[in-house]
Every structure is written in C-alpha cells, then in structure tokens.
C-alpha cells in the first residue's frame, strides 16, 4: 500500500508516492538520498544517530513513518549550514574534537541545536543530560560537551539564538 506525501525537507518540498510502512529514516536516506542521517540501531530509538528535526523539534526518524511527516517541515544535518556558512555547533565540534568516526555526529548536532534554542546558556550538567538520547561510542562525550558549551557561548555572544529548524 502506498500513499502520496508532501514533505518539506531543508526548505525543499518533496512530493512522493511512498509505501505506508516506510520509515522516515528510510525516506530521508533512500528516497531523498540525504545520507547524512544515520542509523545505528534497528527500530529501537535508542542510539539517536537518526535524529532529525520535525518542525524544529528533535525526533528519532527511525521511530516514525514517512507518512507521519506528510505536510510537515523536516530539517536534517544537510540543512544546518546556511549558504555555505557552518552553524556554530558544526564549527565547535571541529574545534573541540567532538567527533571521531562521525557516525553519531549528525544526530548529536540536530539534538543539540534544538536544546540550545530551549536553553541558550546551559551548564555542563544540563548539556550532558540533554544528550542522553544520543550514544557516542568514540569520544567519551567530553569533546561533544565542550563543543556544545562553546557553541552556546558563541551564539549568546553573537546574540543569534539558533533559528528554528525549517
């Protein structure tokens, strides 16, 4: 069984006929070929590698069907840098060695981006708790936490709270 859906992803409207059981993560990766969103567990919603934003809110795209995104706005890691300018989180992850293999990174950043909109000046402890839904196997989290903290500072200093994902 298939259904036509219309989803806005990173600002572009996609109208596609999809099987009703297609997962959102597979729609993003296989139908739209946006492979920056990763899959680290199997329909468990535990690892967070598949995290994207739905109407600006971080969601695990392996836990949703593509048809549930019909008419909604999705932002993936590919949509975060604007006009070739990296988001402060992306810059801070590089500066603070917040990634090794990079497999968790897209999900981490999409989650952290929403978090910093809700809490622009977080403590270290708040950052650590905000990230419990994203597993990183390489870094020991320290570089990630430092990066989120540095990005928060940079964004607050610049007076540019992150835009809502759309």
């Amino acid at each position: 069984m298939t259904r036509e859906i219309s989803v806005t992803v990173n600002g572009t409207v996609y109208r596609k006929q999809v099987p009703v059981r297609l997962l959102l993560v597979d729609f993003i990766r296989d139908v739209l070929d946006l492979t920056g969103t990763h899959q680290g567990c199997t329909y468990e919603g535990v690892c967070g590698a598949c995290t994207v934003q739905l109407n600006g809110e971080a969601v695990k795209s392996c836990m949703m069907l593509a048809v549930q995104a019909d008419g909604q706005q999705v932002t993936t890691i590919e949509g975060l840098a604007r006009n070739g300018v990296l988001h402060p989180l992306q810059k801070a992850f590089k500066e603070h060695h917040g990634l090794q293999c990079g497999f968790c990174t897209s999900g981490m950043i999409m989650n952290a981006e929403e978090f910093l909109r809700t809490n622009p000046r977080p403590t270290e402890d708040e950052i650590r708790h905000a990230l419990i839904g994203n597993i990183c196997r390489c870094t020991g989290y320290q570089g990630i936490v430092a990066a989120v903290s540095a990005a928060a500072e940079e964004m607050s200093a610049a007076g540019t709270p992150a835009k809502s994902g759309s």
Binding site: L34, T35, I77, E78, L86, F93, S106
Partner: peptide
C-alpha cells in the same frame, strides 16, 4: 562529517 557528507 559535520555537514552530512560522510560516505559510510
């Protein structure tokens, strides 16, 4: 890797 262009 930070812009989703990794090739796993």
């Amino acid at each position: 890797l930070l812009t989703g262009k990794g090739q796993y």
